[in-house]
Amino acid sequence: MGGGRVTERYRGLIGSAVVIALLGLWQLVSVTTAAGRLSSSPVAVFLAVPEVLRDGLALQSLYSLQAFVVGMIAAIAAGVLLGLFLGSMRVLTYLLEPSLMAFYITPTIALLPLVVIWLGVGNTSTAFIVFLSAVFPIVINTIAGMRQSDPAWSRTIRAFGGGRLLTFCLADVPGALPEIVLGIRLGIGRGLIGIIVAEMYASSRGLGFLLDTYSRAYRISDLCVVVFAIGIVGFAMVQGVRLFEDRTARWRAS
């Protein structure tokens, strides 16, 4: 670790310097070598933004977002409710957790061809894939959270004469909250993969379809614009949930 001490103060500075340096390197490589044809460049990507906007980036985003939100809300509602229900009864947990775990481990995106057979090409399929991708991390983590919740809380509530319902509402659910939020964050990550792949495979609209179109036409700068747009939105979503997660974890620790 020798040499000059690098303090927290420089975190942002060093981080952004590296990002700028990498962008510079990318620009340099693409200008000076033949690889530039296949890798675009930061300037070219920036200049391609108006073109992609004209191609309907906003409309396609809305279309993707709609399917994503529908699938995600369904996954959160079903996942949390099922998780709380299963997690509150030991027998049910034992009975169904291994099966749910199997789905959690499998890349559910592999169900895509079947889902297309069941629901056809389009928005229903993509929303359903988002649901399938996101629901298992949420269920599994909710169940795990129920197990984590502090037994002292429920004992306290019982000692003060609280019933089972009260214990569930005041101890089990809040106790599991950090894991529930963690599950939702993992679910969002998987749901994003789900929506993009589903649209690439089985849709004629949305951001995944736009990606597919650009890549088939070798419009690499345009492709990069879409990649960055999706990246930034995904990053913002996941980090937003992470902030919320830190807050729930903090009050449990104290």
């Binding site: 690098v6 420089y10 975190r11 060093i14 981080g15 952004s16 310097a17 590296v18 990002v19 990498l22 296949l38 990550g189 994003l192 993969i193 993009i196 792949v197 690439m200 990606l211 597919d212 650009y214 890549s215 070798y218 690499i220 492709l223 990069c224 879409v226 990649v227 999706i230 990246g231 930034i232 995904g234 990053f235 979503m237 996941v238 980090q239």
Partner: peptide, 24 residues
């Protein structure tokens, strides 16, 4: 400090969007 932002970006952003580029 140098690689933290990049690591978090790659962790949170849906990396499959790069798939068409990787094919190319």
């Amino acid at each position: 400090f140098a690689f933290d932002p990049i690591v978090w970006f790659v962790y949170s952003a849906p990396i499959v969007t790069l798939y068409p580029l990787l094919i190319i």
